[in-house]
């Protein structure tokens, strides 16, 4: 593979992350100049207290959350696509996000979850249950299309249980849940950020350690086993990482569709390779950039309205998926 092209891709993505980070801090309902933003970050700012508050309490956590959540969703989408050998796999398609949603709904409505730790654990349990169901079926059902359909059905089941729960819940609980369900990166305060960052970085670190088995799995499970990979262990490790990444993002930011599905494809197109050694880091960085871009696009300068995140992600994601499917040349990444 072309080494020069790789360096170029890493460099541009690195620059993009940094630029988008600062755009996220500058851009918003109130315009704060870059110079002031930097001074606020460095702690040498002695201007308006409101500005300092906006940057440190609102924009900084939102930006960091978007970068981490985007990378997390994209990486879990990539791992699921490799594991299920299916280009249309992703955390939201396989019902894993819905499982996490259901966990959060139960926690919010029945346990009155005020603590974010409860929310995370609930999301994690929900995601794990769906993962176990899919894992169980994956032993019985050999066709990946069938497995995908089972995932979608499990997702519908989870959604309908959520609807029934909402029907019986009190109005304020439902409101709380609906607000969470809109999906946005602004719900994480500076105090919660270490939790979000901790779980998310742990999941990302775990997935970076899985590059070797992921590459072997490109050849299928028999070949992977013949190469000395402990397939069952690798499968569980991949699903655990995917579960943690999806659950932590869903718990803190609500359900976010399309990033997990679309970004791995964008990364493959950029890199021109399915080798996880580079595909996984590039997917991570691309996910961060795209999520942060979406996050920036939800805010209209000079107004106080914020678009829901789920209104933006499909606009970026759907054309990519259609392009990948229509342009058969790119399908070779899966053949």
């Amino acid at each position: 593979m072309n080494r020069k092209k790789q360096h170029w891709i890493y460099a541009s993505l690195g620059v993009a992350v940094v630029v988008l980070f600062f755009v996220g801090l500058v851009h918003g309902a109130v315009r704060i100049p870059l110079g002031d933003v930097i001074r606020i970050l460095l702690g040498s700012y002695d201007g308006k207290e409101a500005w300092r508050h906006i940057v440190l309490e609102s924009r900084l956590p939102q930006t960091v959350t978007a970068l981490l959540a985007g990378g997390s969703l994209a990486v879990s989408g990539l791992m699921l696509q490799t594991l299920f050998k299916n280009p249309l796999a992703g955390p939201s398609i396989l019902g894993i996000s819905d499982g996490a949603n259901l966990g959060v709904a139960i926690a919010m409505i029945y346990l009155g979850a005020a603590s974010y730790l409860t929310t995370i654990i609930a999301a994690l349990i929900g995601a794990a249950v769906v993962l176990l169901i899919i894992l169980g079926f994956s032993r019985k059902v050999s066709s990946n299309v069938m497995l995908l359909i089972i995932g979608i059905m499990v997702g519908y089941l989870a959604s309908s249980v959520i609807s029934i729960l909402n029907y019986h819940a009190s109005a304020d609980k439902v409101h709380q849940y609906v607000m969470w369900g809109m999906g946005d990166f602004s719900g994480v305060s500076l105090a919660k950020l270490p939790w979000m960052a901790g779980f998310s970085l742990a999941g990302l670190l775990g997935s970076l350690l899985l590059i070797k088995p992921l590459n072997a799995l490109l050849l299928g499970e028999s070949y992977a086993a013949n190469l000395g990979i402990h397939v069952r262990r690798a499968r569980v490790a991949i699903l655990v990482c995917t579960g943690v990444l999806t659950a932590v993002v869903t718990a803190f930011c609500g359900p976010i569709s399309f990033i997990g599905l679309a970004v791995p494809h964008i990364a493959r197109l950029l890199l021109g390779s399915a080798n996880h050694k580079h595909l996984l880091p590039v997917t991570l960085l691309t996910g961060s950039c795209i999520a942060q871009l979406c996050s920036i696009l939800t805010v209209t300068p000079g107004s106080n309205t914020v678009l829901p995140l789920s209104a933006i992600t499909p606009i970026l994601g759907a054309p990519v998926i259609i392009y990948v499917i229509v342009n058969r040349k790119n399908l070779h990444y899966f053949n």
Partner: peptide, 12 residues
């Protein structure tokens, strides 16, 4: 081993 099963290694 060399098997007949389909692989998904087209992109490497």
């Amino acid at each position: 081993i060399v098997l007949t099963e389909q692989t998904h290694a087209g992109g490497i």
